[in-house]
Design a protein around this nucleic acid. Structure first.
Lengths: 151, 151
DNA sequence: TATTGTTATACTCTATAACTATA
DNA sequence: TATAGTTATAGAGTATAACAATA
């Protein structure tokens, strides 16, 4: 039955989600970060200094929550708050030297993980893999859209 | 460069993790469950009544935490605590009618998700997909083992 | 002595709502 | 009026440590 093959494939994806999450959490812990704080450092590393409002939108959390995350990252030395050049209501959050070093380490870790996972996989198979992954991503995104509209 | 292809593939996997998590969280919310409580219901559905100790091990949380999760599931009507037949220290946790119904709905939802994701994908591609996924899972599991030994 | 589960305590992440300072 | 960020408050999930009841 093809249903069994489909459930097998989904089961493997779910397993991958679990172990990948475990692996990345361990890696972040070594850097002194948590799953919630890491994206803040990462976005700042990609886009440079941002207001808390922009960070909240990028990371997808509430204003209250970004205050807490930036508090924690400031207390542990990853980011610094500074004045916004034109808007005196806003705070500009930027990476410290430690934060910048950590952001670059995250980039490096991601590249290393990609190598660990895929080095030596035949190109033909990798093509099919990426192809199926793209299709699956599209389907689940459409499903999420549908759910959002339905409420 | 093959490095770019590898990073592309990893990026897609990470995206999949995000949207899959979003989709499943929404589905659990509809059932009145959370990401942390759902595995408790699921394990009870798969294995029948268990002690809290067994549940804690299965789910991978502390004794303190399983007390809290079972408290919450009991308060919301998914599980019931009962005496252990032979060990008077232990509590036997079992699904209520609602819990059982929900566990079976979770099974059904998983099967439906598998169909949504994979129906119509050519068998040849699905083979390659599962093949690569298996290899990737093996690699990351070995990496986790290595990290565990290293401490 | 060892184990099962609870209480005590504390930290992280999350949200909504009220408020202050600015635009 | 509207927006950026903080304080107030609350709830979920997580952990370690001390403790009671039982093995």
């Amino acid at each position: 039955m093809s249903e069994d093959r489909h459930e097998l494939a989904l089961g493997m994806i779910l397993q991958l989600v679990v172990v990948l999450n475990e692996d990345m959490t361990k890696s972040l812990e070594r850097d002194g970060l948590t799953n919630s704080r890491a994206p803040v450092v990462w976005f700042l590393g990609q886009n440079g200094p941002m207001t808390q409002k922009e960070l909240a939108t990028a990371v997808g959390v509430s204003a209250r929550n970004i205050t807490g995350l930036v508090d924690a990252l400031e207390a542990t030395g990853f980011v610094a708050r500074g004045p916004h050049p034109t808007d005196r209501r806003a705070t500009l959050v930027s990476l410290t030297a430690l934060g910048d070093k950590t952001a670059r380490a995250m980039d490096r870790d991601k590249a290393e993980l990609a190598e660990l996972l895929f080095t030596g996989i035949p190109e033909r198979k990798l093509d099919a893999f990426v192809d199926v992954l793209g299709e699956v991503l599209g389907r689940i995104n459409r499903e999420l859209e549908r759910l959002k509209e339905a409420g």
